[in-house]
Design a protein around this nucleic acid. Sequence first.
DNA 1: TTCATCTGCGCG
DNA 2: AAAGCGCGCAGATGAA
Length: 506
Amino acid sequence: MKDFLASLVPETKIFYDLKDCYHFLNGNWEPAGEVFDVKLVAWILEPTKRSYSLEDLAEEYLGLRLSSLPPGLGAAARALALQEFYPLFRPELKAKALERLYFELELPLSKVLYRMEKTGIKIDVPYLRQLAEDLKEALKGLEAEIFLLAGEPFNLRSGRALSRILFEKLGLPRGKKTPKGTGFSTDVEVLSELASLHPLPAKVLRYRALYKLLSTYVEPLPRMINPSTGRVHTTFHQTGTATGRLSSSDPNLQNIPVKGEEGEAIRKAFVAEEGWLLLSADYSQIELRLLAHFSGDENLKQAFQEGRDIHTACASEVFGVAPLEVTPEMRRLAKVINFGIAYGMSPYGLSKELGIDLKQAKAFIERYFERYPGVRRYMEKMVAQAREQGFVTTLLGRRRPIPDIHSRERAVREFAERTAINTPIQGSGADIIKLAMLRLDQALRKQGLRSRLLLQVHDELLLEVPEEELEQTAPLVRKVMEEVYPLEVPLEVHLAWGKNWAEAKA
DNA sequence: TTCATCTGCGCG
DNA sequence: AAAGCGCGCAGATGAA
Ligand SMILES: Nc1ccn([C@H]2C[C@H](O)[C@@H](COP(=O)(O)OP(=O)(O)OP(=O)(O)O)O2)c(=O)n1
Ligand SMILES: [Mg+2]
Ligand SMILES: [Mg+2]
């Protein structure tokens, strides 16, 4: 602490979590001069830490135990400690060439995220209450059927209790162990296998799916409404991931169901204000385009220059139907295959995913790499880069350390290799949409529009738009997102709108 | 009650 | 032995 005064740079304001500060001060305040957000910078410098709490950062970087100070000194000590990070972090930002990422992207983005959180999104509560009743009704019926098939009632949300019924009472074959090896797994993969031997597993799967929707979405969402705004306000975490993506919590609005009728039913509960519309803008095949850009694969590049849809083509091939006959479920599986193979899925994993044998899966993967030879070269290049430099980087220079790339434990090392392959792509996707959010925020303001950003779902932006602004906002959103950072291949955005999030998807 | 860990599963 | 990556949440379980 002795050179505390020397470290105080007059033109620089030092904060810990500026987005939170905006909330405290209600947004009508703007710091002047150079702004240094210790939490945000710590994450940019090293995005793989467990915690970015001031306590943990102070202990690691300053050797200070803030928590063991006498009570009452806490706030003052925190404020003083904060200053100490500047002389440590500021040079490192420059040394790692992360100044522009911080000053021109992440820092201004924090204000945009603040506004999105403050705005919130409207929920149709009576609709959800009805949906809850319907789900409970269906669950009750399923529960009765399950107990009848089991010959006794049991806690069917307990894996252990379910194990006893399936593997001991009914004598069905045990499959794999649970990840920590403490018991036998009853996950969807195992139960699907068992479904051909006994009617019970399928009922349990159906029960689990409906219970998940009820307990995770339909019941909690109305309780999360802020009474003073009548809307749900998520928190976007800007320092929450190792790749550069955002995360969302309390509630998480980045994992709202989308599959099947039930998913659609839940999305109908996210509605626009009267006189407004929800406008969704989702990048088309975003990470495949980034893969084309980074790998330079001629086939992949040409496909995108010709406006083709790789997911649909893959689905058409796998299911042996014409592209026009590809359903949303088929295309969804194709995504898993396309990204799975690109990110290191083994023949074993692919065989499980497609329900084919190992040999066929192996052949499928070989065909994939024959078709897109640049993809394999990209994978090898990222692994080599991680080995040589100890980290990998994204489009805008964001970097993730990959220390385990040198592990002598094969499983650990191979996990690190797949991480090295995935992070530049996933992280660049994050770079692109974050930049688009900034530009869009500016553009909406400049054009004097009331249209506003509500949510970011990794490669999708959800806006709320006054009906009369749709004509102007929709093309603006498309232009900003598609042109935000030109690549070797064009970026395309799928736009959809409606009174609710289900309509704004079609 | 609260907390951590495990399992499972929703989304991108 | 393990065999796409990235998240957050709910319930069960066991301990404080
Ligand atoms: N199983 C999945 C699904 C998605 N993603 C990543 C890669 C996708 O590019 C990105 C965005 O997901 P989308 O569902 O929007 O998929 P795409 O953008 O690829 O396709 P679409 O044209 O349907 O938007 O998330 C992934 O890694 N694994
Ligand atoms: Mg997309
Ligand atoms: Mg998407």
